[in-house]
Amino acid sequence: MSVSAIAFQRWISQLAPGSSTADVCRQSGVKRSTLAQQLVRGKVAETTVVAVARAYGRNPVLGLADFDQYRELAASVAPPTDAEVLSQTPTARLLQELLVRVGAQPSVPAPPQPGELPLGEQPAVRQWVEAIDDGELRHRVSLAAGIAPQNYSAQLSANRLTPELAVRTAREAGVGLRNGLVVTGLVTADEAGWPPSAVQDALGRLSDAELTLLASERLAVLGRSLKRQEHDERASRRAWDHLA
């Protein structure tokens, strides 16, 4: 879902009084052609709202909450569950924790500073949904959003969700609505209010067995992905060799 262009222009007039469209684009880094096209279509993308909010010193989560369809974000301040945090924790960080526990590595790095939560560089949307799924989540989201289950599954297979579906997924799962925006990469964990120590705290609450199982599951997924990649590369080479 995008926000109404009329609502966006009204919001800009309050956020940056007297600023022209050119001023807003120059300040936020949004291309003038991009914003112009969105305004003509009557729908402004959430990524534009986030970029503009940041540029003018407004927390992007609260910036989105200024629009009707995202109003609930302002009051949704529930911290992420351990399962959510761990779903976004890089596999390398899990392995590092394992090495520390078995004594193969002396210590973990210094705790991150605020705004530097060591989440994965790439969104892990599918892992997040799997972490909060009670077995019926996908069905409930599809019904609530009025979309075909296969369309929802297609987005997850591509490791992405629209902001609207991410928030709706969080709502149906009973977790903080802001968390859906974090896992899609639209806002940072810091902007959503995640504690800077969230990763270390979640890891600390895992038993050795739980940590080992989680790391092994991640490695198995990574192994299958690499195997498919190698297979595709070999097939591609054979095809080129055949054409040569």
Rank of each mutant, 00 (worst) to 15 (best):
L86C: 04
A170E: 08
G120N: 10
R58P: 02
A170V: 13
R101I: 11
I6L: 08
A45H: 05
N151Y: 14
P149F: 01
L206P: 05
E233L: 14
S76R: 02
T169M: 10
D208K: 04
R101V: 09
D23K: 13
D208G: 04
F8P: 01
V44C: 03
G176Q: 09
L99V: 06
A104F: 09
T81V: 08
F8L: 00
P109L: 07
P149D: 00
D68H: 03
L73Y: 01
T89F: 04
V30C: 02
T91D: 05
S76W: 03
I132W: 11
Q37A: 10
S33M: 02
E121M: 06
R238V: 02
R160Y: 04
L213C: 00
H139F: 14
K31R: 15
A75E: 14
P17L: 01
Q38D: 01
L86V: 05
V44R: 03
G29E: 11
P114A: 14
L73E: 00
G185K: 08
S19A: 15
P114I: 15
L143S: 10
N151K: 11
G42N: 03
A5V: 03
A51R: 10
L39E: 03
S33C: 02
P111A: 15
A209Q: 12
P106F: 10
Q150L: 06
I147L: 04
L156K: 03
Y152H: 11
A92H: 04
E164K: 07
A145K: 00
Q37C: 03
R238N: 04
V102S: 07
L219V: 07
A5Q: 02
Y152I: 04
Y70Q: 00
A198N: 10
A16W: 01
W11L: 00
H242P: 02
L214D: 01
P112V: 13
R140G: 08
Q200Y: 10
N151V: 13
T91K: 03
L203K: 07
R101F: 09
S197T: 14
L165M: 11
A202Y: 11
L62T: 10
T188K: 10
D241L: 12
V175L: 04
A36H: 07
M1V: 12
P118L: 10
R205P: 11
Q96K: 05
G193T: 15
L64G: 01
A5P: 03
E233T: 05
L62I: 09
S33H: 03
W128P: 07
S216L: 05
P149W: 00
D66I: 00
S142W: 01
P111T: 10
Q105V: 11
Q200W: 13
L177V: 06
D134E: 10
C25M: 13
L62R: 12
V187K: 09
H139Q: 14
A53E: 06
L86Q: 05
V187Y: 13
V187D: 11
A166F: 08
T81W: 04
V100H: 14
N179R: 12
A154C: 02
G146C: 00
R71T: 00
L214T: 02
P60D: 13
S76F: 02
L99T: 06
R218K: 05
A22H: 12
A202Q: 08
V182A: 09
E233P: 00
L181N: 03
A75L: 09
P114S: 15
S76L: 02
A202P: 08
V175M: 04
D66F: 00
N179F: 15
A198W: 12
E97Q: 08
H242T: 11
A51V: 05
